[in-house]
Simulated assay, not measured.
Amino acid sequence: MSVNHPVVAITGSSGAGTTSVMRTFEQIFRREEVSAAFVEGDSFHRYDRMAMKDELARALTDGDHSFSHFGPEANLFEDLETLFRDYGETGTGRVRKYLHDEAEAAPHGQDPGTFTPWGDIAEGTDLLFYEGLHGAVVTEKVDVAQHADLLIGVVPVINLEWIQKLQRDKEKRGYTTEAVTETILRRMHDYVHYMTPQFSRTHVNFQRVPVVDTSNPFIARTIPSLDESMLVIRFANARGIDFPYLLSMLRGSFMSRPNTIVCPGGKMDLAMQLIFTPMLWRLLERRAKAG
């Protein structure tokens, strides 16, 4: 953790909705004139797209049916921890970018599914903002979570998470339902051991719970909308949270536990604005006082 160079991390599984949360933070940063160094978790995968396919084929040949992007074998956890630690100490660190598609790859003259060269974060940013799978990961060798000043989990209930992943991978990546289902099954071991434990280390969790039937996510035709959901917001430490104010601003919300607010899913963006803006103020005020 750092006073002078805060690290904010959004953590969630593939298909959980972390990208939507990132867009909300982009709005906050623009409004509050915060200069953020954005880091995508995909850039810390160990293998590019083709190499990952080769490694997966090798693992299956060797009888390993749990090799996945969720686990340490497919990621550079040590490098991610180094980035968080170095940024906290110096305000910079080594990063690269994973180029997902043609639009991202064309300006670099590279193929989609590859990485840009490593480079240093430009000096002068106010904070580092990470969005990806492993912002709070801890293993026997690394502890990424200890270096973050604000950790946020995005955790839809599991059936909703699967529906979102199925729809995204089929529509945007052309995968079949069977192929996505196979990926979900293969990732389950790493999901349990490396993804789920992170959400006990986060400072705030946003969990979307649909209020429509999602009993069989593998036949769902549409993703339940925000208005068809409730949002469970859990604070690890309720001290300093103005719950009466939040309840008054989030119409239809209520407290389910002393550290938990439940509100209509359509209020998700507003809830994030209300909760995270003062948290960022505190981080930046602390930074200004230390400077």
Rank of each mutant, 00 (worst) to 15 (best):
S2V: 10
V3D: 05
H5V: 14
V7E: 14
V8K: 15
T11I: 08
G15M: 01
T18R: 10
S20T: 09
V21S: 10
T24Q: 09
F25V: 11
E26C: 14
F29H: 10
R30Q: 15
E32Q: 15
E32L: 10
E33H: 11
V34D: 14
V39M: 02
E40D: 13
R46M: 03
M50H: 14
M50C: 04
M50G: 08
A51S: 04
M52Y: 05
L56W: 10
L56F: 07
D62R: 12
D64G: 06
F70H: 13
G71Q: 12
P72H: 04
E81H: 13
T82A: 05
D86V: 12
E89S: 15
R94F: 00
R96M: 01
Y98L: 01
L99Y: 00
H100R: 06
D101Q: 04
E102Y: 05
E104Q: 14
E104C: 02
A106S: 13
P107N: 03
H108C: 00
P112E: 03
T114L: 07
E123Q: 13
D126H: 14
L127S: 11
H134I: 09
A136S: 15
A136I: 09
E140H: 09
V144A: 07
A145Q: 08
A148F: 00
L150N: 01
L151E: 02
I152A: 02
I152G: 00
V154E: 03
I158W: 14
N159H: 15
L160S: 08
L160P: 03
L160A: 08
L160Q: 08
L160H: 08
E161G: 05
Q164G: 00
L166Y: 04
R168N: 03
R168Y: 00
D169R: 03
E171M: 15
E171C: 09
K172M: 06
G174M: 11
V180Y: 01
V180C: 01
T183G: 02
R186Y: 00
V192A: 14
V192D: 07
T202W: 00
Q207V: 13
R208Y: 02
R208N: 02
N216L: 09
N216F: 11
P217F: 05
I219T: 12
D227S: 14
E228T: 10
V232Q: 10
I233Y: 01
A236G: 03
R239L: 06
G240V: 06
I241R: 05
F243N: 12
L247V: 11
L247C: 04
L250E: 15
S253K: 15
I261G: 02
C263Y: 04
P264M: 07
G266H: 12
D269G: 07
D269M: 09
F276M: 03
T277V: 02
L284N: 12
R286A: 01
A288G: 03
